[in-house]
Computed example of a mutant assay.
Amino acid sequence: MSDTRDSTANRAAQFKQWGLEVIAIEANAVGRLERFIDAQFSAACELLLGCHGRVIVIGMGKSGHIGGKIAATLASTGTPAFFVHPGEASHGDLGMITDADIVIAISNSGETDEVLSIAPLIKRRGVKLISMTGKPESQLAQLADVHLCIAVEQEACPLGLAPTSSTTATLVMGDALAVALLHARGFTADDFAMSHPGGSLGRRLLLHIHDVMHRDDRVPVVQAEASLSEALLEMSQKGLGMTAVVNNQQQLLGVFTDGDLRRILDQRLDVHATTIATVMTANPVTITADVLAAQALKIMEDKKINGLIVVDAAQQPIGALNMHDLLRAGVL
Rank of each mutant, 00 (worst) to 15 (best):
A313M: 05
T274E: 15
G95R: 00
L161W: 02
F82S: 13
D211T: 04
T73Q: 02
N247C: 06
A226G: 10
V279H: 08
H210R: 14
I122E: 00
T168C: 03
H324E: 09
V245D: 13
I299S: 06
N322Y: 01
V179N: 00
T281V: 07
T79G: 00
C157L: 03
A329W: 03
G59N: 02
L269N: 11
D302G: 04
I209M: 09
Q40H: 15
G87L: 11
G198V: 04
T73P: 00
I122T: 05
L233I: 12
V103R: 05
K303F: 08
F15C: 13
S236H: 12
A320E: 09
G67I: 02
E155C: 07
T281F: 08
S109K: 03
D113R: 07
H324S: 09
Q249P: 06
I118A: 06
G259Y: 04
V291L: 15
G78V: 00
L252M: 05
V146T: 02
P86C: 13
K123D: 04
A141L: 14
L252T: 08
A189N: 13
L20I: 10
K69Y: 08
P197S: 06
G259A: 14
L49D: 02
Q251M: 03
G64A: 09
G202W: 10
K298C: 06
